[in-house]
Amino acid sequence: MTADDSFRRLEDDDYPAYTMGRAAEMLGTTQGFLRAIGEARLITPLRSPGGHRRYSRYQLRIAARARELVDGGTPIDAACRIVILEDQLEEAERINAEHHRTARH
Rank of each mutant, 00 (worst) to 15 (best):
E68Y: 03
E90F: 08
L10I: 02
A40H: 06
V70K: 07
L46E: 10
R54D: 03
I43D: 02
R61P: 04
E98Y: 08
E86C: 04
S48F: 06
R41A: 12
H52V: 13
A103T: 12
I43E: 02
R47G: 07
Q31S: 09
R54F: 02
V70Y: 06
L42F: 08
L60R: 01
M20H: 04
E11S: 04
E25R: 15
R35M: 02
D71Y: 01
A40L: 03
D4H: 05
D5L: 10
I62K: 11
S48L: 07
M20Y: 01
R22T: 12
C80N: 08
T2K: 05
I62T: 15
L27H: 13
M1R: 05
R41Q: 13
T44E: 13
A97K: 07
L34F: 01
G73Q: 03
E39F: 00
S56M: 09
R67F: 04
T44G: 12
E93G: 03
H105N: 10
L42D: 03
T30E: 09
Y55P: 00
V83L: 05
L60I: 09
G72V: 05
I95N: 05
A92G: 01
R53F: 05
P49F: 10
A79N: 07
G28P: 08
G32D: 13
Q59A: 02
S6T: 13
I84Q: 12
A17N: 13
I95D: 06
T19Q: 06
Y15V: 06
I84Y: 01
D77V: 15
R41D: 15
Y15T: 05
N96W: 00
G51K: 11
R47Y: 10
N96E: 12
R54Y: 02
D87P: 00
R81L: 14
P49L: 13
V83W: 02
F33I: 05
A66V: 05
L27V: 13
Y58H: 14
R35V: 04
A64P: 08
Y15H: 14
G72R: 14
E68H: 08
G21L: 01
R9A: 13
E91G: 04
A63Q: 10
A78C: 07
Q88I: 01
I82D: 04
R57E: 13
G73M: 02
I76C: 07
L69M: 09
Y18I: 09
R101W: 03
E90Y: 07
R65F: 08
Q31E: 11
I84P: 00
G38S: 07
R9G: 04
I43Y: 00
A64T: 13
